[in-house]
Each structure stands twice: as structure tokens, then as C-alpha cells.
Amino acid sequence: MPAALRGIRVLDMCIVLAGPTCGRALAEYGADVIKIDPEHRQPGLTPWLEVGRGKRSICLNITKPAGLDAFYRLVETSDVVLEGFRKGVADRLGVGYEQLKRRKPGLIYVSINAFGQQGPWAVRPGFDQNAQAATGMQVRNGGRDGVPAPPPYTFNDYGTGLMAAYGVIMALLERERTGKGQRVETALSYTASTFSLPYMLDYVGYDRNEIEGPDAKGFNALSRLYQSSDSWFLLSVEDFEGWNRLTRLDSLKHLRGKPEFATAELRDENDEQLSEQLALTFRLNSTEEWARILKGVGVTAIPNQTISELREDSYAQRHSLIQSAKHPDFGRITHGGVSPQLSRTPAVAARSPAFGGDTESILRELGYASPEIDKMRASGAIPRTASVPIA
């Protein structure tokens, strides 16, 4: 089947997670993504295997004249450039938006950093936790009256990469209509703000009652995590009929007759007490037993799974949430699947390349002959070896 982004070439100059996630997302749908790194900027093995999938890799030192010239020749064959430099660095290197736009007017140029391209924070370096701190995420995670704490997952990195890919697709669609390229800007702090939209809402008379802090287990007593005799599960009771079904169980029917739980409003007022009552009952059986019992009365209970359990889960395998492939250098690699599953143009399964392993083949595609490639090796524009081992 044809890939959705077949024929689109992307130059990925980014490091760490956010920018490379954008490149990987585009590669998963068929874009020819070329990862560009200087030889000395070797990635960590784990992120390389995670966000390097589906790309080709060229080691190119653009601070060398021959390296910069090769980059310019690549730009002329490309649709998209991804960069993650601090403000001003790309211009200084000769690869800024205005500089490349003159060479390729239809270019989509994507800038990804921590705090955007404008204002006093634009020159600040930053990682996911910086953006979390600046947008209130760590306060919410620690609780307003507690100690701020970072979430244990870099979702702004991954989210920003996906937001950038979203921006690329929109810019490509707009170019189809006008023939013109444009610059796309996104940042970790922008993504953190987007993920925080419910908490930013305010209006006259709005009474904030948000869950927050490390002890939060859910939204209320009927939509939260409970501990069973052997693990945890999520209870989800959505409406009055769900409450009736739940309290038909012999072990919970005593709750139906309690006046403090008689209506949805009263249950909300006495939420902590209801949580305590349910928690006492749910500790009596295993998660597997509760999932079976609650399913029998039409109530949703989702067991909490570990990653190792998810890898063996038939649902995850059937829907390609977990994928596995043989890598020639690192053996069998297991990784997550993709979310948008297209019927006509599905995602393309691929592995990560050898670091710099496509350098010579890409240069030959550009028309470089062996003597020119040898001169580039001698000048330090490309490595002397065919690929560079990742430590």
C-alpha cells in the first residue's frame, strides 16, 4: 500500500526527544526522513532506537564548508527542515529560515525549542522539566499546598514532537493550495500550556475543584483507582443507572440505602466517605475477580497493567500498540506502535539506522563522486568510517 507521506523529504537536525519525535512521526507514514548529525554528537542508544526509527542517517559537520554545501544541496531536494537550536544559532550556522527560504521558497521550516522564538526567554535552553515548571505542571503534580514535583514522564517532549508533525502536515496542505512554504514554530512550553487548557479556564463565579497532587486517584469516588487484594483497577461509573448496577451487588447493596448517598448531589458532597466505603470492599477480592464481578452487572473496571503485562496482552498485540522487530546491530527491539491507524495508507514499520550509516549513499544521491567524498572525509565534513558506533 502507498504511504501517506510518500515523496516528502524531511531533514531532521534535532536532538534528544521532541524534534526527533516529529521526524519519527513523519517517517512512520512514509516520509523520507534524513537525520543529520555531526560525528561528535552521538545520541544515546535508547533514544536512538526509540525516535530514530524509519530514518536514514548522515553524519555531516555543517561548520565545515564542504559539510554546509552538502546540506544546502540536500535542502534543494527537500520539503521540510526540522531544527531545535536556541534562537540565533541556526542563523549563525547559515541554516536559518530566511537563509534557506532564499534557496527553497516552498520549504517548510520547523523550529522546536523550550520557550519559543520571541521574548526574553527565547534564548534560554530548556528541557521538559523546565517547561513543566514554567507552566504550573509541577505545582499541580505536587498539589497546590504541597511540594512541586515533576511528572515521571516527559510528555511535553513527545507531545511537542507530535504537535510539530501536526504543524508540518497543515503547512504541507497549505502549500498544495498556494505553492508557498512557511515557518512552523512550536515549543515545550506551548505544548505544556495546551495540555493545561482545562486548568487555564476561568470566568466569573467559576469554582475550581480540580484533582491534583501525588495522592489523587481519580475524579471522584465512582471514577478512580482502587486497590484490590493483589493490585489496582480503575472503577468507572458514569451515571445514575451505573450507580444502580453497582449497588445491586450483594457486597455493595448496603450503600444504596444510606441517605448520604441517595442522590448524585449527596454522593458528591460525601465523596470522601463513599471512597472509603468502596475501598474497604474492593480490598476483599483480587483485581481479576472484581473485573469479572463488575462486568457481570455492566460496570466498567479496568485492571492496571505493568509494561511487561502490556507486552503480552492480546489486545495490545492485535492493535499493534506493542511492536517488535529484529535490529541487525542490537537484536530484537520492542517498542510502542503508532496511534493514528489509517485504512488505506497504514504506518510503515521500520528500524533505526546505523549512526551515520547512510552518509555515503545520500551523498551519491546528490551527485557526489568518490574523489569529492574522499575530500570531505579528509576535511572532517564527514566521518572517515562508513558508520559511527553508538557507545
Rank of each mutant, 00 (worst) to 15 (best):
A350R: 12
S352H: 09
F355W: 07
I362S: 02
S352K: 02
P340R: 10
G367F: 10
P346F: 09
V348W: 06
A350E: 11
G336P: 01
D358C: 08
G367E: 09
S343M: 04
T359S: 06
S370T: 15
G336I: 11
Q341L: 12
V348R: 15
L366G: 05
R351M: 12
A350I: 03
L342Q: 05
E365R: 12
R364E: 09
F355L: 09
S361W: 00
A354D: 09
P353S: 06
R344M: 12
V338H: 07
P340T: 10
R351Q: 13
V348Y: 07
F355K: 08
R351V: 14
A369C: 04
L342C: 01
S343G: 09
A350V: 05
G356W: 00
D358G: 07
G357Y: 03
V348Q: 15
L363H: 02
E365L: 11
T345F: 05
T359Y: 01
P340E: 09
A350Y: 03
G357E: 07
S352G: 07
V338D: 03
D358H: 14
S352Y: 08
S370K: 12
A369W: 01
G337E: 06
P346C: 09
D358Q: 05
V348S: 07
R351T: 14
P340V: 10
S339E: 11
L342N: 02
A347G: 14
P353Q: 07
E365N: 09
E365S: 14
S343I: 11
T359K: 01
R364S: 00
F355C: 10
T359E: 01
D358I: 03
R351A: 13
L363C: 04
L366I: 04
E365I: 01
D358N: 15
R344Y: 09
R364D: 00
R351I: 15
P340F: 10
E365K: 13
P353N: 08
G336A: 14
G356C: 07
A369I: 13
R364V: 11
S361T: 14
F355N: 09
Q341C: 06
G337C: 08
I362K: 00
A350K: 11
A350W: 03
S352R: 02
S339G: 01
A354P: 01
A369M: 09
R351E: 10
V348L: 13
P346W: 06
A347V: 00
S339L: 14
S361F: 00
A349G: 10
A349I: 14
T345D: 00
E360H: 01
I362M: 02
L363T: 05
G356L: 03
D358Y: 04
G357H: 08
R344D: 12
G357W: 06
A354R: 15
A354I: 00
G337Y: 08
L342F: 15
A349K: 14
T345S: 15
I362W: 01
G357I: 06
V348G: 03
L366D: 04
V348H: 05
G356P: 08
I362F: 00
I362H: 02
S339P: 00
V338A: 12
R364W: 00
A354G: 13
T345C: 11
S343V: 12
G356M: 02
A354K: 15
E360V: 14
P371D: 12
I362P: 02
S352L: 05
G336R: 02
A354T: 13
T359L: 01
P346A: 10
A369T: 12
S361H: 03
